[in-house]
Amino acid sequence: MLVGMIPHDWDSIMVKDVVNLLQEAGVNRRDQWLDVIEDTKCSEKVVKAIADHFPLSGARVGTRDDDGDYDPIEIKDGRIAAYEKLLYILPPTQVALNTAGDPASLNCLLASLDRHVCTEINLWQTYYHPTEDIHPIVDQLLSKVWSPDLSVYAGPLSDSVLSRLQRVRSLRYISLSISSNHQATLLMELITSTSFKDLEELDIAVTPEVQPAAITTYISCNYNIWVWLYLLDVTDERVSWACEMVANLIKPSQWEYHIGFPRSTLDEAGWIRMIQDLGQRGIKNIGGMSVPDTSISSDQEDQLDDICCDTLGAYLVRHSFNQWKK
Score class of each variant (00 low, 15 high):
residue 20 N to Q: 14
residue 222 N to K: 03
residue 263 R to G: 08
residue 159 D to F: 03
residue 204 I to Y: 00
residue 143 S to M: 15
residue 172 R to V: 10
residue 5 M to P: 01
residue 133 D to S: 02
residue 79 R to K: 15
residue 43 S to H: 09
residue 292 P to H: 10
residue 178 I to C: 09
residue 115 R to Y: 13
residue 172 R to D: 12
residue 244 E to N: 10
residue 168 V to G: 12
residue 237 E to C: 04
residue 25 A to E: 12
residue 64 R to E: 08
residue 123 L to Q: 03
residue 286 I to D: 02
residue 247 A to G: 12
residue 120 E to K: 15
residue 15 V to H: 05
residue 59 A to H: 04
residue 180 S to I: 06
residue 174 I to T: 06
residue 165 L to S: 08
residue 135 H to S: 13
residue 231 L to G: 07
residue 122 N to T: 12
residue 87 L to F: 11
residue 124 W to S: 02
residue 205 A to K: 00
residue 175 S to Q: 03
residue 61 V to M: 10
residue 121 I to Q: 07
residue 227 V to S: 07
residue 270 G to D: 08
residue 309 C to P: 00
residue 248 N to G: 13
residue 53 H to D: 03
residue 3 V to M: 05
residue 224 N to D: 07
residue 156 P to H: 10
residue 204 I to T: 00
residue 21 L to H: 07
residue 59 A to V: 08
residue 131 T to A: 14
residue 66 D to M: 12
residue 89 I to M: 08
residue 83 Y to W: 12
residue 5 M to Q: 11
residue 126 T to F: 03
residue 253 S to K: 01
residue 280 Q to V: 05
residue 51 A to N: 06
residue 1 M to V: 00
residue 285 N to K: 09
residue 27 V to W: 11
residue 190 L to W: 02
residue 117 V to I: 10
residue 220 S to W: 01
residue 89 I to R: 12
residue 110 L to C: 13
residue 244 E to V: 00
residue 11 D to I: 07
residue 57 S to D: 14
residue 42 C to W: 04
residue 92 P to H: 14
residue 106 L to R: 05
residue 234 V to W: 05
residue 320 S to L: 04
residue 75 I to K: 05
residue 133 D to Y: 03
residue 36 V to R: 05
residue 256 E to P: 08
residue 165 L to K: 05
residue 298 S to T: 15
residue 304 L to D: 11
residue 297 S to P: 06
residue 135 H to G: 04
residue 154 A to Y: 09
residue 155 G to L: 07
residue 258 H to Q: 09
residue 129 H to Y: 06
residue 139 D to A: 15
residue 275 I to N: 03
residue 149 D to M: 06
residue 199 L to D: 02
residue 21 L to R: 13
residue 4 G to P: 01
residue 306 D to L: 10
residue 145 V to Y: 09
residue 155 G to Y: 03
residue 299 D to S: 13
residue 212 P to Y: 01
residue 177 S to E: 05
residue 142 L to A: 05
residue 172 R to C: 10
residue 169 R to N: 10
residue 48 K to Y: 01
residue 245 M to L: 14
residue 117 V to K: 14
residue 240 S to I: 08
residue 186 L to T: 01
residue 33 W to A: 02
residue 195 S to T: 09
residue 16 K to I: 11
